[in-house]
Design a protein around this nucleic acid. Structure first.
Lengths: 249, 249
DNA sequence: TTCAAAATCATTCAAAATCATTCATCAAAA
DNA sequence: TTTTGATGAATGATTTTGAATGATTTTGAA
């Protein structure tokens, strides 16, 4: 494995976890302890990490994103839990579609599968994807101003260039009767088309979305697998008759 | 195999993976180690990749040194002068194509025409466009990792959805004999196609680009109007025989 | 707290891999 | 024909790597 490749993997892992053990890296990189140790020394000299006894940690309390505005800590926790579950579904070598939206955005750092190809209509998603060196295609079409998502007929047509092993969609509402719903009909069209082009479809929804109903319908419950972080027993009972569920611990 | 073909394959592979091993390329290109090594040296000189022990990696888009590079005040002044001239060409109600790149990016704030529709392949451009409430379409396709530009065959195909009144292209070199040139052949293809789909084509180049020649050719001088901020009389004479010029005061 | 065992670390060295340079060959252009 | 440029092989130089060694730090029990 190339030196730069190791550097990248180390930093990536560090971003995800905050700290890494040296032995963990030895195993992950399939390199000797000496080599990993040398890598850490190099990266520390570049100020990209701080070496600690037994491994390495993020340098200074890093600049967090300035705009975590209205989201509560609890919401972020939930969103990340869902995102992590979703990312774990991706298998090496697959091509997947990732919908625009904050929940799907959160799953990108957790993707560990190798050699995947990602198509997305989310402008914000591209940044994270390229920094993970994931081969990425952006859907062309009209920019929706507020959400930085690509929508419209050209996007739909553009999507026909692709076929996906899996698609991961966001939603604003999950309801037993109404299925999955979202406010913007244009976005709903895009999501629906992604579903049609995918072998498997997943909808990501933290528990705050349960019981909500929005304007435009994406899918019926039975058309996709629901990924959520936790369900009350009564919800689990009523939903599980209609759809597959991937649920956090 | 032709040299240029090898270059193309190397850069392609690099875009896909972020790093390539030298031995990998030897096998892929069916050339000797010496030849591949020479190719890498050439491409590094063109700044299209960074050689590392064991192979090559994408050039790090690190902080530009304010010393030599184009971050000087003078260059920004020039770039803005060119950008302003270009933006002034846009007429109310037109649809235009704006190429990825820093010079074309600079023209967006200066656009005053009303009711224009913009198509671009530059991710960075979208931000400015939507904040000016300009109706914007993004080209779909593969993301080029270090310039945040969309390239590739899908982008080309995607572009066929549009016709433009004008297109504004960036360049890295303007030469009387060689015409307009740029380092990346993939980007050159995109630019060329934009030209073909436009009623009028403009190439933006501050005076530092004059006499420079890069790797891949976009257009001949006579195919587009050159927009630049100032010309020496000798340059004006030699270029004006071949092309239209829009020149700053 | 203090001590000893365990874990982690820094340093060194030799082997392996990779690199730069040189040179001979070949084909196309002059 | 000679010349030019590209190519591949060979050589020795350089860099990277993994293991070994002893030093240092952490851990846990007394």
């Amino acid at each position: 494995m190339l030196t730069e490749e190791r550097y990248r993997i180390i930093l990536e892992r560090l971003q995800e976890r905050g700290v890494v053990k040296l032995q963990e890296l030895v195993e992950l990189l399939e390199a000797s302890e000496s080599t990993v140790r040398r890598d850490l020394i190099d990266l520390e000299e570049r100020q990209l990490l701080k070496r600690i006894h037994g491994g390495a940690a993020l340098p200074s309390p890093k600049m967090q994103e300035p705009g975590i505005e209205e989201k509560t800590f609890r919401n972020i926790q939930q969103k990340n839990a869902v995102a992590r579950l979703a990312a774990a579904q991706v298998v090496d070598g697959e091509s997947i579609y990732i919908d625009a939206g904050t929940t799907t955005l959160a799953m990108i750092p957790f993707i560990e599968a190798k050699d995947v190809t990602v198509v997305t209509n989310g402008l914000s998603h591209i940044e994270g994807l390229v920094s993970k060196r994931i081969k990425s295609y952006l859907l062309g079409g009209m920019m929706k101003i507020h959400t930085k998502a690509v929508i419209g007929s050209i996007a739909l047509q553009n999507m026909d260039n692709f076929r996906f092993d899996r698609c991961f969609l966001g939603t604003n509402g999950v309801d037993v009767e109404m299925g999955y719903t979202t406010p913007d009909p244009e976005e709903a069209l895009i999501k629906r088309r992604a579903h049609q082009l995918s072998a498997s479809s997943y909808v990501l929804a933290d528990s705050s979305k349960l019981g909500e109903v929005s304007f435009a319908k994406l899918l019926d419950l039975n058309e996709a697998t629901l990924i959520t972080e936790s369900l009350t027993p009564s919800w689990r009972k009523s939903i599980s008759q209609k759809t597959n569920i991937i649920e956090g611990s």
